[in-house]
């Protein structure tokens, strides 16, 4: 019987074949979902999705694109914003 703490759906199940030839299930933690644009809601590119203990050790340039509003707005929305500011 599976221990009660492994029945939670916050863990994902992975079938693993051991060196002894047995098929066992491993219970692994899930990753967070991808970042979305604050304006239009599109999935952002250049932003990794990792658990906090990995994200903390990544460098600043590895977590977002090197662009104003990078990691916050998608490229299209940032372009529109800059156009608006320039036309004022």
């Amino acid at each position: 019987m599976v221990a009660g703490r492994y029945k939670s759906r916050t863990l994902r199940r992975k079938k693993v074949k051991t060196p002894g030839g047995r098929l066992t299930t491993h219970y692994l933690k899930r990753k967070p979902k991808k970042a979305h644009c604050a304006e239009c809601g599109v999935v952002l590119s250049g932003v990794p999705r990792e658990r906090p203990y990995i994200m903390r050790n990544l460098g600043k340039t590895k977590k977002r694109p090197e662009r104003p509003f990078g990691g916050m707005l998608c490229s299209k929305c940032s372009r529109d914003l800059i156009k608006k500011q320039a036309r004022k």
């Binding site: 090197e66 662009r67 104003p68 490229s75 940032s78 372009r79 800059i82 156009k83 500011q85 320039a86």
Partner: peptide, 11 residues
């Protein structure tokens, strides 16, 4: 002009 795209945008 003002650059819109790239790492040097808004300049």
């Amino acid at each position: 002009c003002v650059k819109i795209a790239g790492r040097d945008s808004n300049r």
